[in-house]
Amino acid sequence: MSKSLSVDEINSEFLPLIYDIIRSYERDSHELSGLGPKSVSMREPQQSTTDSNAKIQTLRDKFTQFRQEVQLINGIAVTKEEQLKSLDTLRQQLVMKRDLLIKYKNSCPFDPNHKI
């Protein structure tokens, strides 16, 4: 049995993580450009690069999860032609039901005092 999801159930919050990645790269570039070559230790850029790489990997994982969840959305495999055919069928049913309601409203009212 495959699990199906609705669009509202999919986690698509990418912007905060993208913002963090951009900010960390901006910080790295400011730190490296603002400091002299002797005052930059070798450990700090590696640490910030490691943090940036971890954030990028997290973003990649989120994208992978998002792609998998999109495939589980109800009706994702239905083609445009099938959707249009279904829509046409539903419109025909609506017209038939509307006609039946009009006929029912215009029919003779039920008279409880009338004896058969």
Rank of each mutant, 00 (worst) to 15 (best):
R43N: 08
R91T: 10
L87A: 14
N74R: 15
D111I: 09
K97W: 02
M1H: 05
I76K: 11
A77V: 00
L35V: 05
V95K: 15
T64V: 15
P45D: 09
L32G: 03
E13C: 04
I56F: 06
L15N: 09
D51S: 06
D61A: 09
V7P: 02
N53W: 06
L59V: 09
T89Q: 14
L59Y: 15
V40F: 04
V40Q: 14
I116L: 08
Y25M: 10
I22Q: 12
Y25S: 08
K3G: 00
F66S: 02
S39T: 14
S29Y: 01
I73W: 02
D28E: 07
S6R: 13
D99M: 06
F14W: 06
L94H: 13
V40L: 14
Q93V: 02
Q47E: 15
G75K: 03
T58L: 14
E82C: 02
V70Q: 02
R67N: 09
P16T: 05
E82I: 01
L100I: 04
P45W: 04
R98V: 05
I102C: 03
K97N: 12
L84R: 11
S6E: 11
H30P: 01
L101V: 08
E69D: 15
S41N: 15
Q68I: 04
T58K: 15
D28M: 07
K3H: 09
V70H: 00
N11W: 03
G34M: 02
Y104K: 12
M1F: 07
Q83Y: 06
D88I: 04
N106P: 01
T79E: 02
K97Q: 13
L59Q: 13
N74S: 13
D51H: 10
M42Q: 14
F66G: 03
D28Q: 10
F110E: 13
C108D: 11
L84Y: 06
V95Q: 15
R60T: 09
I21L: 05
G34D: 03
Q65L: 13
K55C: 04
V78W: 01
S107T: 01
E26M: 05
L15P: 00
P37G: 00
Y104G: 00
R91Q: 13
G36Q: 02
T50L: 12
H114F: 15
E44G: 01
V7R: 09
K55S: 10
S86N: 11
Y25P: 00
I56M: 08
Q46H: 10
R91S: 10
G75Q: 06
Y19H: 12
K3P: 01
D28K: 05
L59D: 10
V78C: 06
D28T: 08
